[in-house]
Every structure is written in C-alpha cells, then in structure tokens.
Amino acid sequence: MAQVAVLKRGRRRMLIAVPLLACLAASGCLFAPREAEPPETGTIVRYLEQIAPVNTWDNLETSAEATHAPGWEAAISSLSFMYEPDPVAENQFPGVFTGWNRDKELAFINALYNAKVTIVAQMRNPAFVVPPSSGSESLWEDVIYDLTVTSTVDASKVRYRGLADIKFTLEANFWYISEWHDRQGESDPDSGQLLSTMGVLRGSFASK
C-alpha cells in the first residue's frame, strides 16, 4: 500500500513538474521579441521620468508629436483608467465610451498613430498653473489641451481643443493618469470656431 502511495505521489509530482518545465522551455522561442534597430541619430524621443504628474502629462505631448505609442501607453495607469467624454462627443458616438478603460485607450492611440498622421500637440495651455504633487493622488482641474491631426494621405488638418479634469495616481514609484474627464470643447484661438474635444477623436477611431 505504501508503495502504491509513493508511486501516486511521484506521478502527481511529475504532472506538476512537466508542465512547469515545458512552459519554461517553450518560453525561450515562443515568447522571444524581435531584435530592434539601434536608434537613428536625430530621432531620439526624449521622455521625462514620471516622478511628477507634470512629467507624465508632458510625455503625452512628446508621444503625440513623435507618434510613439509606448510613451502614451506608459502614462496610462495599468491598475485603473477611465475616460469620460463631454456630452457632445457622447451623443455623437452613443455607447462607444461605455467601459472605456486602458485597453480601449491603448487601442485608440495605436490606431491613431498607425493611420498615417502627423500631430502637433500642446497638452496644457500656458496659463495653466501646475499644482504641486502631493500624497498619492493629484487632480488637475481646467487644463486645456490642443491637438492638430494632419493626415499625410490627403493633407487635411483637424484640430481638437478641450477643457478637461485629469486625475493622477501614484502607483509604486511613478505617477500615472487614472481618470480623464473631458468637460467641454474650446474655441480655436485663431478663428474663434468651437472645436471638438478628444472624445470625438477617440470616438471616430473606436466606432469605425
């Protein structure tokens, strides 16, 4: 009886060890990333360490102007992220923003950057006074961002300008964007025309 028990125990250990060893062996080839090209001179994308909310927010501008998605992805919280559109964008794309989380935000930014566009961005208006970061949460109210998206296919330019509230959260050692509330579209400083928020930009890519 004791021998049978020992055999059963041995078989059970094999059943545990085999898949563990198999996955470790397989991970080397199945999960090997590609070799990268060394950085080209003159194309260095310079991000700031996300040790303050202002660095995290300004990295969005760097990411947009370089159409470099990893920079935007790094600024979005992986624990909890929500986006709330302004009512006009929500009405224009009903249902699209329900449960807008990190995955949807990343899908949007990759789709935008992959769509043959160039972007000129100013993620905070010069008059905005950056509140000093403190504690583990920081709320920015009334920040005005401005993006101009130019299609390299037909050279058309579409400008987005919105007033937003942004909540930053300190996770481990770095600040991430955990909430983005678009409140209203702002006027084009040059023409005075009312412009859409990034909710319309997000909705356009998420709904098609």
Partner: peptide, 19 residues
C-alpha cells in the same frame, strides 16, 4: 517587462523593467 520599438526612429527608449 520589455518594451521594444523595432524601428531605429523609435527605439531610443527601449527598456527592460524588473520589479
């Protein structure tokens, strides 16, 4: 976590994070 941009125009920030 390894974030790797393949093209030379975007690879300057390639990094590996061990937590």
């Amino acid at each position: 976590t390894r974030d790797i941009s393949i093209r030379g125009s975007a690879s300057s920030n390639n990094n590996q994070k061990d937590s």
